[in-house]
C-alpha cells in the first residue's frame, strides 16, 4: 500500500518538492495511528470486556450518532435515552436483539445495531443511559394552539378519557411521567417519537397488548396532544 509513495529514481532526481515535506506528511499520518481502543471495540460484537468504560465507548462512538453524546438526541424521531428507566432500556435492547419489537425504525435501525450485543453490554449500556441527566425541556410556545394541546394532553395523561375506556397514563407512568419500574419515563421525550410509538401500538407494529388496548380509541390529535404535554414536562 505504500509502494506508490516511493518516488521513482528519476522522479527523485527531478522532483522540485523537498522530500522532507512528504516525510513530514507521512510522519503526521503515523502520529495519528496510536494502537489504542479500536473503533470496532466500540462496535457491538467486538467487545471482549464489556466494562462500564466499554459501554461509554460504545455509547459515545456508535449510539451517540443518533441518540446524542449523553443520550439526549436532537432528532425528533430518535428517542431521548438520558434518564430513562434502566429496566425498560434493558427490556427494549433485548426486544431489538430478539427482533420482537417491530415498529418501523426498530426494524430499520435497532434490529441491526442490537443484534450482537451481549447481555453484559446491554446491562452496562442501560446503566449508562439511566444514570445520565435527563434533558431540560425546551421553552414551550405560548401560541394558543400549543397551549390548548397541552391542556388537552394534561387532561388525558392525568385522567384518561373515561367514556372511551382510555385510562389515565399517569396510573402506570407516574404522576410526573418519570416512569415506574418497567414502565418508561415519558417526561421530556420528543413529542414526534411519542406520537410515532402511540401509532405503532395502535396498529400493533409495536405489539404490546396493554398499550394497544389503551390506544385503540385514541385519535391522532389526542396522541399529539399527550405527546406535546409530555415533551414539555421536566
Amino acid at each position: 500500500m505504500t509502494c506508490y509513495l516511493k518516488l521513482p529514481i528519476n522522479a527523485r532526481r527531478r522532483s522540485s518538492t523537498p522530500q522532507w515535506r512528504v516525510s513530514a506528511l507521512l510522519l503526521a499520518t503515523g502520529l495519528l495511528l496510536p494502537a489504542t481502543h479500536a473503533w470496532s471495540d466500540a462496535a457491538p460484537n467486538a467487545t471482549p470486556n464489556a466494562t462500564p468504560n466499554a459501554a461509554q465507548q460504545l455509547a459515545v462512538g456508535v449510539c451517540a450518532t443518533c441518540h446524542g453524546a449523553r443520550g439526549i438526541s436532537n432528532l425528533p424521531k430518535i428517542p431521548v435515552l438520558a434518564g430513562q428507566g434502566e429496566a425498560y432500556l434493558t427490556a427494549q435492547l433485548h426486544a431489538f436483539k430478539t427482533q420482537t419489537r417491530g415498529d418501523a425504525d426498530a426494524i430499520g435501525y435497532m434490529w441491526g445495531m442490537a443484534a450482537d450485543l451481549t447481555d453484559e453490554q446491554i446491562l452496562n449500556l442501560s446503566h449508562y443511559y439511566s444514570t445520565a441527566a435527563a434533558p431540560t425541556p425546551a421553552t414551550v410556545s405560548t401560541r394558543q394552539a400549543v397551549t390548548a394541546q397541552i391542556t388537552l394532553g394534561a387532561h388525558i395523561y392525568t385522567q384518561g378519557i373515561a367514556d372511551r375506556g382510555v385510562p389515565a397514563c399517569s396510573a402506570c407512568h407516574g404522576p410526573d411521567a418519570h416512569g415506574l419500574g418497567d414502565f418508561p419515563r415519558l417526561a421530556s421525550q420528543h413529542a414526534a417519537y411519542i406520537t410515532k410509538q402511540l401509532l405503532s401500538f395502535q396498529n400493533t407494529t409495536r405489539d404490546v397488548a396493554v398499550m394497544h388496548a389503551v390506544t385503540t380509541t385514541l385519535k391522532n390529535a389526542e396522541m399529539t396532544a399527550v405527546a406535546t404535554y409530555l415533551q414539555a414536562l421536566p
Binding site: M1, L33, T36, H37, Q56, Q57, A59, G61
Partner: peptide, 20 residues
C-alpha cells in the same frame, strides 16, 4: 477507499474519530 479509523472518548463525552 481503504480506511483505518479509530475513536477516542474525550472529557465531557465528546468523541474524536480519526483515521487514514
Amino acid at each position: 477507499d481503504l480506511r483505518y479509523a479509530d475513536m477516542r472518548v474525550l472529557p465531557n463525552d465528546q468523541s474524536l474519530v480519526y483515521g487514514v
